[in-house]
Design a protein around this nucleic acid. Structure first.
Lengths: 189, 189
DNA sequence: ACCTGAACACCGTTCAAGT
DNA sequence: ACCTGAACACCGTTCAAGT
């Protein structure tokens, strides 16, 4: 129950903030108000602190978002995927979609540069592995994964769309399967 | 050669700005500095005017972007597409991709709501029609178009990606064809 | 070491006034 | 009718100072 700000033998002022506390508060703002309201200034207010205090625990806003996404992904339970390779690709892509759907701000963070976290590698690797088991060469598998990833990003980014009806989960799955099957059958061509 | 600000019989102060002039200046900023520098304030400076003068000719920044994209699309020459339906789908998607690649800020405008311009309908319709000619039902064709559109948006949004090598035009085409063939063959399933 | 306050260089937009 | 200036309510970030 040793609180960090009472730890003895440390020089200087005891910290009032911590990376942990900042991330918790940021997640709260994200949940309660949405990503468009998460600013360094808003976050400082949430913590009854000043914007600049944050910069002592986090390099900049981009790093903060990266850390938030990282923590979010880490909280996700690792589902066990089906044995059949094709089903595994579909399930993996579906999982990736679901993760990002619950975390719309994350798409932007991932789509932009900088994010090099390894906390989501398992799912990427699981998809690529399954693609190889489906018969694709490693190079083709990576590329096929890339196409799948682009479709997911597009699906999540191009939200409203001209057809005002959001597609049902079933429709989405059919679309996803079509894309995956197309990528798989290109191998044999 | 009748300049609008000398047109007789009009009441009030002659206009110094016009929607046309604003769009031209905005396009110049876009070309020379990039979309991230196009602000109402920057644009007003470009026109030696004040930010608020712009709001007399344009409802807000979103409308400005919409008008810019509209003008951009209108300038594109209408290519003639191949006869074979499948090739037509591929060519249409390719064209859509190329248009947006030269116009990265447009992706965001299109991905967000509001844009209801009809200046790009011809290309969308051409793709949907070709999909129907390929044997898809009208409903399936619209949905297939949606999937293709999402892939394009994703491809353009998820720019850098973990594989640091940007795919070649050939690779991209292969990916696109795989997606399209997947969508087409789902029909017969 | 950790935090504060003021400042810099921006945003989009509203409101009241000027010609 | 068209434009201006000041103001509102924001941004992310740097810099110098305080304890």
């Amino acid at each position: 129950m040793q609180s960090p700000n009472t730890r003895p033998g440390r020089l200087g002022r005891p910290p009032r903030l911590s990376r942990e506390a900042i991330l918790v508060a940021a997640q709260r703002v994200l949940d309660e108000e949405g990503a468009e309201y998460l600013s360094m200034r808003r976050l400082a207010r949430e913590l009854s602190s000043t914007p600049m205090a944050l910069y002592h625990h986090v390099r900049d806003k981009d790093e903060l978002l990266m850390l938030l996404l990282d923590a979010y992904v880490r909280r996700i339970p690792r589902p066990d995927f089906p044995d059949h390779p094709r089903e595994r690709v579909v399930a993996g892509a579906q999982a990736l979609h679901d993760i990002l759907e619950d975390c719309p701000w994350g798409v932007e963070v991932l789509a932009s540069d900088r994010f090099v976290s390894t906390s989501a590698t398992w799912i990427v690797e699981s998809i690529v592995d399954a693609l190889v088991l489906c018969g694709l060469s490693p190079g083709d598998a990576v590329y096929a994964y890339r196409v799948i990833w682009c479709c997911l990003v597009g699906e999540l980014t191009a939200r409203p769309f001209r057809a005002r009806t959001t597609p049902s989960a079933d429709e989405r799955r059919r679309g996803l399967e079509a894309v995956i099957d197309g990528l798989l059958s290109q191998n044999t061509a």
